[in-house]
């Protein structure tokens, strides 16, 4: 399942997209500890499968929460520079902005 967490507001679209079909195979879940803001958590989804998710408390302020990691990434650089994206070996995490 592809889960999109985030929002659209007047300034743009701020979604973190997670392909949770990789989470069941993943044993270590490095994305959880990679995020300096602690945005991610492991949950059991509605189909009783383990899934990485964005914590409820962050879903409406991702633009601000993730801003600490964003300035270091210049637009010409690879999005892999983001710690969460880099940590997931399956490349299951994407940011829309």
């Amino acid at each position: 399942m592809i889960a999109n967490y985030g929002y659209t507001d007047g300034s743009g679209e701020y979604y973190i997209s997670i392909n949770t079909s990789f989470c069941a195979e993943c044993q270590t879940h490095p994305c959880i500890s990679a995020c300096p803001q602690g945005v991610f958590e492991m949950i059991t989804d509605d189909y009783d499968e383990p899934a990485c998710s964005v914590k409820d408390s962050f879903r409406k302020k991702l633009n601000y929460t993730c801003s600490t990691c964003k300035p270091a990434r210049k637009s010409s650089e690879s999005p892999l520079f983001l710690p969460c994206v880099q940590a997931c070996v399956n490349r299951a995490i994407k940011h829309t902005w």
């Binding site: 999109n4 507001d9 979604y15 409406k60």
Partner: peptide
């Protein structure tokens, strides 16, 4: 009927 992709806007 199993969800494969979803997007939600609950900010406003």
């Amino acid at each position: 009927g199993k969800v494969t992709n979803f997007l939600m806007n609950d900010k406003c």
